[in-house]
Design a protein around this nucleic acid. Structure first.
Lengths: 205, 205
DNA sequence: TACTGAATTAGTACCTGGTGATAATAGCTG
DNA sequence: CAGCTATTATCACCAGGTACTAATTCAGTA
């Protein structure tokens, strides 16, 4: 028979080990011996069984991830991926809701992420040196869930030549269902060119 | 006389060294000897003079930075630190604008981060199982810059017992200057307080 | 009872990517 | 030539491991 009285402690230790390293990847094997009250060899056997790399490898992996992340997230001025952009006219971006965007208990996206996509797009679509959100009126029409792809469409409604404000409407869809709508007032820097090409008027709403 | 014919190569090498490590922090001293055609001792003397830590230290620093970033950005359900919370009444949170929150060119905070703080607080202040932003009307009164501390104050204006919507006003200040105001409509789940488990609000999930 | 076998512990050799110290050399320069 | 800087060469040592072999413990059982 399998000595379950012996087996349990090992599995429990494995669970503890995973938990400890999860919440502090910077721990050395020697420190783990003090936490788990077993020899360093046992720690190393455990790591092997669990496929946990050594401290230096863990740090290297984290560094590589963050190196990529810094390049792709922080330097990125836009939340979501812009797939179409006609400056001063319209734009489309796609943003997939991942687990870091949702309430973990419910799997529902936190509102400010949906807002962030729309806000980024509204700013990006303005063809000017500086564009800042000045005001917004927004509606969350239905909650967005983990894994759903949000497609935001922005339309510049007015960017009248001399003025320093532009109005942008953004509608966000999941599939063909509208989940968010926002009306943004974007402040723009003075130096705009005098092209007033957009004859679009409010053909919606 | 100073042997500038000798000095220049050294300074040039230092510049190269800085550039190489900047764009690839994962390089070892041994690899650098091949790139710079000098001995490994020279590489190490150069690193010392330039105050560049060894590979493992560099990786550790990157890992720590990314670890903090993950903790503060992704795992946190609330943007900003809540310093006071009176459920269904009011709340205060503090959020410092860091470089990942600003337009790199101008140093001005992107609107959705300021919004995120306010939105998080508006949701947190509602004492209910589920609270979701339903709509919001917001104004960015002045731009917020890198390094500024945003203090958001939320007030629940109506949470009439049976209703499923609450109104929350949030005002964000830098010093005594108001930089943002928002009027939120928060959807809440049926029960005003589910007495099923005790300290609900302790779990941020 | 003695045997089996998993789990644990111990010990050794070796590895990478370094630090720190000391000393030898190269190359120019006044 | 001496004097100087820069460079290179060794050597001992370190942390935090891997890889391997061997001993010990301890429960279950044939």
């Amino acid at each position: 028979m399998v000595p379950i009285i012996e087996r349990q402690p090992k599995k429990q230790r494995h669970q503890q080990l995973l938990r400890i390293i999860e919440e502090n990847p910077f721990v050395t094997d020697r420190e783990l011996t003090r936490l788990l009250k077993v020899s360093i060899q046992t720690i190393r056997l455990d790591r092997m069984e669990l496929g946990i790399p050594e401290l230096r490898e863990r740090l290297k992996l984290m560094a590589e991830r963050s190196y990529d992340a810094v390049r792709s997230l922080q330097l990125d001025e836009v939340i979501g991926e812009i797939v179409d952009l006609q400056l001063d006219k319209s734009g489309i971006s796609i943003f997939e809701i991942q687990k870091e965007h949702v309430f973990s208990r419910t799997g529902i996206a936190r509102g400010h992420h949906v807002f962030a996509q729309a806000n980024s797009l509204a700013v990006a679509v303005i063809n000017d040196e500086i564009a800042l959100t000045s005001a917004a009126d927004i509606r969350f029409l239905r909650s967005v869930r983990l894994g759903e792809k949000c497609i935001a469409k922005a339309f510049v409604r007015s960017h009248s030549g001399g003025k320093s404000k532009a109005k942008v409407e953004v509608f966000t869809y999941v599939g063909d269902e509208m989940v968010f709508q926002g009306h943004f007032v974007i402040f723009r820097s003075a130096g705009e060119r005098a092209n007033e090409g957009g004859s679009e008027r409010a053909d919606r709403d």
